[in-house]
Design a protein around this nucleic acid. Structure first.
Length: 601
RNA sequence: GGCCCCGUGGUGUAGUGGACAAACAUGCCACCCUGUCACGGUGGAGAUCGGGGGUUCGAAUCCCCCCGGGGUCGCCA
């Protein structure tokens, strides 16, 4: 192989002393001392100092004076020990330097629009416009590398488990039942469209029918929905499916995958092993969400039985109307100001909860047994006895100096969600999330269906291919809301990182579910006929899961958004700011696709 | 579609009704400098304050509309 370089900048050390090397890279920084010039030369592997001494080469020294930041240069020189006292411990290559005897400028560079050699905050739209420069920065380079390591680890791991990686098409059929599809017009078939896969769900099930048994793919998925910090129009998931398995097999495999991945890639990160398991009901009950961040502690507890003994009408009426009174304890927050409490009340109000009560448990440093009513500055002291307050404090695991929040409501779900939001806000304010912990958990026992009030129809909690639990199958006809699905999620630090299920593998049951979801026979045939027919040719029992690669890498890098781990992400309005996509196309292109643009009113 | 935040020399910030002919840091350009490593020194250039309209004697600053970016609710089988 012929390269313009013999070594990379970052690999050089004392072992190379005396070696004649040729390096090529970018000028990270130039320090011109007049008679002597230093260049920090950067390539993918790191930075090394190059010395241009006119006594070694007058020509090199002159060329170096022309160099500027981000110029692409090649240097031939000798690796030498730095003079004693001039070593740079901040640099991995800081013991040595390269004395240049030959150099040339391979390309010049305009002054970049932002710093590449410093880690400063830069407006994201500018970074995205010049993403190729942004990716030169150390932080982004490290993120790209870590992402590669994650995907490499997954491939190696699954290979040892007997999985094979199979590609599935990007141009498939629109079967609208979930997110909005990205569509591609057909030139050959006027008026017809392909859809980009929202996930390879049906394809991987067909691969199971094909007898592949263990399949995976690092798959691009496309969903035309609004973006979030952890959502992009196109994203990458590890798509995985196995035949002849039950829920437990999939969970054990994924647990082993994630534990060994984290140990290998981020050994300093702590995890709870084995991963705790929560049912969907427990998650909602104790955390007010189906993707709880277990690092925060502060579990929600039901207080209805205690306050039922009080004469506080807010509590009593909530309970009488079939609702709940629940609470949460904010450690050490008894001294919160009125203003802070109003702000927190706002959080609760935003999700539609009323009946917000605060109970500060006096000053810190003392037993809860010594608490007196006078210490508790709350309206609730008029209606709650000291003993009731102590019972509440005990149930919430509270100490003196803590602040209790109680929410009463006739709709239990809103009480849970409000306390869940409050918990997240308190977690942020109290910085309870340990960045060196990855709190993986499994969420299991989801309902199969939920009733959509707006459309007046049953909808799939996960997707329509999820199998009901065997013992619940008979309930499908009489009480669909009670049916649990063989559906499981993996949640980590409050982020849903994977969802999967054991699938339906008979056409009979699959048809029944489609009908329950409101499709008529014709629609079922038109949209899912291919899948149902396949099930009639010996489809094996099968199931799988789909972890989100972007989210996993985001958690491992400690980034706040998945855009930081995607080389070329879209903006919130789904634009590619590097290419300025989407863009208009020519009239000829439209005509070939048999399309005419509508006049927007 | 709703709500919230941001937009000031290349970059990051300050300035929130008059003393702004817009400040600071860094970057950039020129000159000086042989051991620096965020080198140092001297000098210099660089901003229609995102765009448009309005209020006012006076607007970077207040109001309205638009554009761009971000967060979030809805949405995300």
């Amino acid at each position: 192989m012929i390269l313009l370089k013999s070594h990379s900048c970052g690999e050089l050390n004392k072992k190379h002393l005396g070696a004649k090397v040729t390096l090529a890279g970018w000028v990270n920084r130039r320090r011109d001392h007049g008679g002597l010039t230093f260049i920090d030369l950067r390539d993918r592997e790191g930075i090394v100092q190059v010395v241009f001494n006119p006594e070694v080469s007058k020509l090199c020294h002159e060329v170096a004076s022309q160099m500027r930041s981000e110029y692409v240069v090649r240097v031939s020189g000798e690796v030498a020990l730095r003079p004693p006292g001039t070593e740079n411990p901040k640099l991995p290559t800081g013991d040595i330097e390269v004395i240049a005897y030959n150099t040339d400028i391979l390309n010049t560079s305009k002054t970049p629009p932002f710093y590449i050699n410093e880690d400063t905050e830069i407006e994201e739209s500018l970074r995205l416009k010049y993403r190729y420069l942004d990716l030169r920065r150390a932080r982004m380079k490290e993120n790209l590398l870590l992402r590669y390591r994650v995907v490499k680890f997954i491939r190696d791991f699954l290979d040892t488990k007997g999985f094979i990686e199979i590609e599935t098409p990007i141009l498939i059929k629109s079967t609208p039942e979930g997110a909005r599809d990205y569509l591609v017009p057909s030139r050959v078939h006027p008026g017809k469209f392909y859809a980009l896969p929202q996930s390879p769900q049906q394809l991987k099930q067909l691969l199971m029918v094909a007898g592949v048994e263990k399949y995976f793919q690092i798959a691009k998925c496309f969903r035309d929905e609004d973006t979030r910090a952890d959502r992009q129009p196109e994203f990458t998931q590890l798509d995985l499916e196995m035949s002849f398995v039950e829920e437990e097999d999939i969970l054990n495999l994924l647990e082993e995958l994630f534990i060994s991945m984290v140990k290998t890639i981020k050994p300093e990160i702590r995890m709870t092993k084995p991963f705790p398991r929560l049912t969907y009901t427990e998650a909602m009950e104790y955390y007010g969400t189906d993707k709880p961040d277990l690092r925060l502690g502060m579990e929600i507890r039901d207080l209805s039985d205690i306050v039922a003994q009080s004469n506080f009408s807010i509590f009593l009426s909530a309970i009488a109307e079939g609702g709940k009174v629940k609470g949460i304890c904010a450690p050490g927050c008894a001294n919160y100001t009125r203003h802070q409490l109003v702000e927190l009340n706002e959080v609760v109000r935003n999700v539609g909860a009323e009946g917000f009560i605060t109970l500060p448990l006096g000053a810190s440093g003392g037993s809860i047994n010594d608490l007196t009513l006078e210490m508790v500055r709350s309206v609730a002291t008029k209606f709650l006895t000291l003993d009731q307050i102590k019972q509440i404090a005990e149930r919430l695991g509270a100490n003196r100096g803590d602040l209790l929040f109680i929410i009463a409501g006739k709709a239990s779900k809103i009480v849970d969600v409000a306390l869940g939001e409050l918990r997240l806000e308190l977690g942020r304010r109290l910085k309870l999330a340990d960045p060196n912990v990855l709190a993986f958990i499994f969420i299991v026992d989801f309902p199969l269906l939920w009733w959509n009030e707006e459309t007046g129809q049953w909808e799939a909690m996960h997707h329509p291919f999820t199998a009901p639990k065997d013992e619940d199958a008979s309930l499908l006809d009489v009480a669909p809301e009670k049916v649990q699905g063989k559906h499981y999620d993996i949640v980590c630090n409050g982020c849903e990182i994977a969802g999967g299920s054991i699938r339906i593998h008979t056409s009979e049951l699959q048809r029944k579910i489609f009908k329950l979801l409101g499709y008529n026979d014709d629609e079922i045939e038109e949209r899912f006929g291919h899948l149902l027919e396949a099930f009639d040719y010996g489809a094996p029992p099968h199931g799988g899961i789909a972890p989100g690669i972007d989210r996993i890498v985001m958690l491992l890098t400690g980034e706040e958004t998945i855009r930081e781990v995607i080389p070329f992400p879209k903006s919130q309005t789904a634009c590619d700011l590097t290419f300025s996509a989407p863009s208009t196309i020519t009239e000829q292109q439209l005509a070939e696709l048999h399309l005419r643009l509508r006049e927007e009113s």
